[in-house]
Amino acid sequence: MATQLINLSNILELHKRAKDTDALSQDIATFNEAFKQLDQAVETVNGRATAFTLSSRNILDLADEAEKWLDRHDMPKKSRVGVRVFHRPAGPSAKSYKFRATTTEVVIVRRTSGWFLSEIKRGSVNPKQGATTRYIINEATRDVIVRNALAGTEIKAAA
């Protein structure tokens, strides 16, 4: 199910700023509206399913972790635009579970102003299948990651 882009970074920022009482009253309405949009998208996809699915909080945590992943790779802000992250939670762990379980699959995308939910849909996951998180980057972004990883390393030709 395709969805309109929902600004996850905006929700995270409003949540962090909520500790500042001066900005609190103005931000509460904005936060509630943005979070309600995200909740509606999640509830529409999940339906009555509750196990092996993602919640709004899980998606916000994914956006936060994705930003930390970019930070760990010393990614400049301008190179972050266009990075996509696909995520699907783990399947049932019980040996007695014999069938595929319904789950939630999401794709978030990094724009100049932060992370956006670009796709959320129902999926299925096998028993004993682990969670899947894939970072989808372009070649230029890959080159930046490799260059940063090899900074300070001398590479010699094989003898």
Rank of each mutant, 00 (worst) to 15 (best):
M1W: 12
M1I: 13
M1Q: 14
T3W: 05
I6V: 10
N7G: 07
L8E: 07
L12D: 10
L14P: 04
H15F: 02
R17H: 03
T21V: 11
T21H: 10
A23L: 11
A23D: 13
L24C: 00
L24D: 00
Q26V: 03
I28Q: 09
I28F: 01
I28Y: 06
E33H: 03
A34N: 08
A34H: 01
A34T: 04
K36Q: 13
Q37A: 05
Q37H: 13
L38V: 12
T44K: 15
V45I: 11
G47A: 06
G47D: 06
G47N: 08
A49H: 14
T50M: 03
A51E: 14
L54M: 05
N58R: 04
L60P: 02
L62Y: 12
L62C: 07
L62S: 12
E65H: 13
A66L: 10
A66V: 10
A66C: 10
E67A: 08
E67I: 08
K68G: 05
W69S: 09
H73L: 02
P76V: 08
P76H: 04
K77R: 07
K78M: 14
K78Y: 15
S79D: 12
S79C: 01
R80M: 06
R80A: 02
V81N: 10
G82R: 09
V85L: 05
V85D: 03
H87C: 06
R88L: 07
R88P: 13
G91P: 01
G91T: 05
G91F: 05
P92I: 03
A94H: 09
S96F: 04
R100L: 13
T102M: 00
T104A: 00
V107L: 04
I108N: 02
T112P: 10
S113M: 11
G114V: 15
G114L: 13
F116L: 00
I120L: 11
I120P: 08
K121R: 15
R122D: 00
R122S: 01
S124T: 10
V125L: 08
K128G: 00
K128H: 02
G130N: 09
T133V: 14
T133P: 08
Y135C: 09
I137D: 05
E139M: 09
E139H: 11
I145K: 04
I145A: 00
I145Q: 01
R147A: 14
R147K: 14
A151G: 15
G152W: 01
T153K: 14
I155H: 13
A159R: 15
